[in-house]
Design a binder for these strands. Structure first.
Lengths: 350, 350
DNA sequence: ATATTGCTTTGGAACGTTCCAGACGACACG
DNA sequence: CGTGTCGTCTGGAACGTTCCAAAGCAATAT
């Protein structure tokens, strides 16, 4: 508790220190920082010099207290899913942090109990620790969205309000159907006709959306889809099992999967049977995870434009926190296809 | 700018609100929250009731201002390395966030210019936005450590002070040499005798440390290492090239790699040559990334105990921020080996 | 000459909390 | 009965910033 003078870090300079050095009032220094055009140019220069000399930076806590804003954005992260390929969240976090920085915001991470989707939000909100939230895990409806909405808490969702299309909160999402259509068309263009689908259980909105891209692309070319689809859990083992069954029963020459995790399951089956991914059977995944990028012979995968998503999310946040708040419509972005060996006859070659 | 009453979120209750409701002074409420044992039990109960009723939670900004502490820990993250397997950082972030929560802290992420290792630290420090930092990227010495040390900024490093063993800051690290020795011994136990090493360039402290584990394990069994080692950049292509050369020139039957990324390069070479990982040639990686977990037939990999690392880091942080600060010695943790198909004769089977 | 306007600068109050010194009553001790 | 001590509670000040209203001053308009 004792403050040993000189040993602890020197207290950072305050507004008053700068004011004294520049020979002006505190308020003038504040204006120099926040409204420079209010000052006469010579005083501005003098104050800026003093700021520079002292290495002054406004104290965050004081500023937050006065302005009732923390410039922090809360993002809840769940425990890592071991044995899963898609670390999509991580790529998004990186993009979000970088984009937020340009907007003068920082990202506050908090942990969540996977069983309680609301845990953590309330405390941060009531203690005014963050200005807004970015909500990501909207895979099964999104209780957070409705809850936060009821609390009048500002938030932007990465993911559409599937269960409530009339929701009014801002959201950004990626068109999964378009992505899977892209993947399927890519395979059809390579001459494949029996393209199978491995996706998630029916209660996943996202899964059904992605699946619809596959059916659409198949039907557009007049190809049947019956017997070519399988719905399982999002694990490597499930993908492996589903692909084994499909290969036996439907003899597909290509697979489109709802995730890289499932696609890796297909690669397992192919390896077991001595089939070469790409040459013998084509495989396309979803998320363009690191796994897809490094597994031999390279897994073709639908890539979400997470950088753009982050940009749109931050844009929406800024609108939301502006005075007065401006909330635009939802934004739907289109993914791209990262083509690799698993879907090209070339086989190996990166 | 206009505040439309009733439409915006109601202002959270303050100490004064609680005090009025409980019929006590502000200070008493504060004590009820921070020093409950100072109050008579009946007043405490009354105040707690009022707190509960109003859903009061202390305002973070005000508390931070007064106590000069933010309960935030800064963590700098770099842009994702595309085409790299090891997302070790992400697993660590998750663990850190969860452990921090238990310690009443949150993690503030900020972005860094990969070229300037110091960018971002200064601003957060001077604006008193964080109490301390967790420094992770100490791969090539660590300018952050010395810089932060000179600034008397509290920080804990994940990574040893390689270039300055007499550094006095707290650190936590994983024994890479032990991990590679573990991996090598595992292979030797399987009957391999010509175990090759693919690691990083000589200027990487971590790389040399890991390599020493391989040589130690080899020499302990009286096996030679000459001609069996290769030092390259940490990319899949490099691992692939290095393994191709080694296979031609030194005829190893197993590979130990400094990273999963390099190990994936080996898998590429094996696939090209029609060799089966595990059955024909064994491969062990480092980091136990998601890639290792899902790639067929499963990549055996050295797994860093990141959960423990996070626990130790937070423990060190708490010591550092205590009054008076207590800084213990560095902590070195031992990794484990996650054995999968790539190093077991069983081949496929998970 | 006086009032008006616009530009620049200023002092005081406020944000919500915790620190500090002191007040109050009860109780024990000399 | 006076005095000291302890346990409990309180009011004022302070943290460093921004908001607000107003003051000073020069130039212009009346």
């Amino acid at each position: 508790m004792a403050r040993i003078p000189g040993r602890l870090p020197t207290a950072p300079p305050t507004l008053a220190d700068v004011a004294e050095r520049a020979g002006v009032s505190r308020q003038t220094v504040s204006n120099a920082v926040n409204n420079p055009d209010l000052l006469r140019s010579d005083t501005l220069l003098r104050v800026q010099e003093a700021i520079e000399d002292l290495g002054y930076l406004p104290n965050r806590a004081a500023r937050n207290l006065r302005t009732r804003a923390s410039h922090l954005v809360g993002l809840r992260i769940n425990p890592v899913q071991e044995g899963t390929a898609s670390a999509i969240m991580d790529r998004f976090v990186h993009s979000l942090v970088e984009t937020s920085r340009e907007a003068g915001k920082h990202v506050l991470l908090f942990a969540g109990d996977p069983l309680d989707p609301l845990a953590g939000y309330d405390d941060l909100l009531r203690s005014t620790a963050v200005d807004a939230f970015v909500v990501t895990d909207t895979y099964l409806g999104n209780p957070q969205a409705t809850w936060l909405g009821a609390r009048r808490a500002p938030f932007v969702a990465f993911g559409r309000p599937w269960d409530n299309p009339s929701a009014t909160h801002p959201w950004v999402d990626v068109d999964g159907a378009a992505g899977c259509a892209l993947a399927t068309t890519h395979l059809l263009d390579q001459g494949h006709e029996r393209v199978a689908w491995i996706g998630w259980r029916k209660d996943s909105w996202i899964g059904e959306d992605r699946r619809s891209g596959w059916t659409r692309a198949m039907h557009e070319r007049g190809l049947p889809t019956t017997g070519l689809a399988s719905r399982v859990e999002d694990t490597v083992a499930s993908g492996r099992g589903a692909s084994a069954v499909l290969l036996d029963e439907a003899r597909p020459t290509a697979f489109v999967c709802a995730s890289d995790t499932l696609a890796m399951g297909v690669l397992h089956t192919l390896a077991e049977r001595g089939l070469a991914a790409g040459r013998d059977v084509a495989v396309v995944g979803f998320d363009d995870s690191q796994v897809a990028q490094v597994v031999p012979p390279g897994l073709t995968s639908v890539r979400q434009p997470l950088e753009e998503v982050a940009v749109e999310v931050v844009k929406a946040l800024e609108g939301l926190l502006a005075h007065p708040p401006a909330v635009g419509p939802g934004v739907l972005l289109t993914p791209t296809l990262a083509v690799r060996g698993s879907s090209s006859a070339v086989g190996f070659g990166s």
